[in-house]
């Protein structure tokens, strides 16, 4: 029940944001009547999704379904795989970091804090130029650098993973360091457990709650990076679709479609974490 209420609240807030956006399209108006009218239309369309239309090339109106599904599938794959990969990369690096001498560890954590600030567009553009340069030098196109109807997958995914990895790594490093100071770690050490197993089994499990607490920030960061990724790589994904068809109803539909699986995964993690550690993720 609690989850349903949260779900509805987020959905309604996204719809209301969409309604406010509608006041800035085609004219700028502060009319409440128009807002209500647009909101009503939007809600009706969400109930009957086949009513969503778009006009590619400004000629005729087509229903966004099923065209949007292909765009959506792609974006979702990038988002989900990107998150999974970042998590694994961050975990691996955290694990390695704890074997480093202390002085190096603080230096690394400070450096990473600065790297985190590098804008996504810089990383995307530099990666693209790098692979173009490799292509020019050697004649081998390692990965496709820009897409059209055939969407390149591997290079965008790798590029996409870099920043969230850094962010997750930093968060994990902080949380793990904090967790390592708890008495049970000392007990485990006293009992003769290996450092690796303490880290990966006990500390990891207990840190998962705190990491999940940060997941909302990471997801919102990843969503905003997704926009730039799809534009700069010319990937036909959902945010690309929204920007090509900048209408409030399509934007709301796209965001809701992205939110749905995120919500399901978040809820599932919440339930699982509660089951295994007995701790609850705070909102």
């Amino acid at each position: 029940m609690k989850y349903v209420v949260r779900f509805l609240k987020v959905v309604i807030s996204i719809v209301v944001i969409g309604g406010i956006v509608s006041l800035f399209q085609g004219q700028i108006s502060g009319s409440l009547v128009l807002l209500m009218q647009n909101l009503k239309e939007l809600v009706l369309k969400i109930i009957h999704p086949s009513d969503f239309t778009f006009n590619p090339g400004g000629k005729a109106e087509y229903s966004v379904f099923p065209a949007i599904l292909e765009y959506y599938r792609f974006s979702f794959m990038i988002l989900a795989l990107g998150f999974f990969l970042s998590f694994m990369v961050a975990l691996t690096f955290t694990y390695i970091t704890f074997y480093l001498p202390f002085k190096m560890r603080t230096a690394v954590s400070r450096m990473v804090g600065i790297f985190e600030a590098i804008p996504d567009i810089f990383i995307i553009v530099v990666t693209q130029l790098l692979f173009v340069a490799i292509f020019k030098k050697t004649g081998i196109l390692v990965f496709d650098v820009a897409g059209a109807y055939e969407r390149p997958f591997i290079l965008p995914l790798v590029t996409y993973t870099i920043l969230p990895s850094i962010m997750l790594y930093r968060i994990m490093l902080l949380i793990f360091t904090d967790e390592m100071q708890k008495p049970y770690v000392e007990l485990a050490k006293g009992k003769g457990l290996e450092k690796g197993s303490i880290l990966l089994v006990h500390v990891f499990r207990n840190s998962l709650v705190s990491v999940s607490n940060h997941s909302k920030v990471i997801i919102s960061f990843m969503l905003s990076n997704l926009v730039m990724l799809e534009i700069l790589f010319n990937l036909y994904g959902i945010t690309w679709f929204i920007i090509e068809n900048p209408r409030f109803e399509i934007a709301v539909l796209g965001i809701l479609m992205l939110f749905l699986p995120i919500f399901l995964i978040e809820t599932l993690t919440g339930v699982l974490v509660k089951r295994f550690t007995g701790e609850e993720i705070v909102e």
Binding site: R6, K9, V10, I12, S13, I14, V16, I17, V21, F24, Q25, K216, V217, I219, S220, L223, S224, L226, V227, M228, T239, I242, I243, P246, F248, A251, I255, L258, F259, I262
Partner: peptide, 16 residues
């Protein structure tokens, strides 16, 4: 109720 802003990327919102 402000949670929607987390899922609506700011750059996309401003663009729209």
């Amino acid at each position: 109720w402000l949670e929607g802003f987390y899922y609506f990327p700011v750059s996309l919102l401003t663009f729209l």
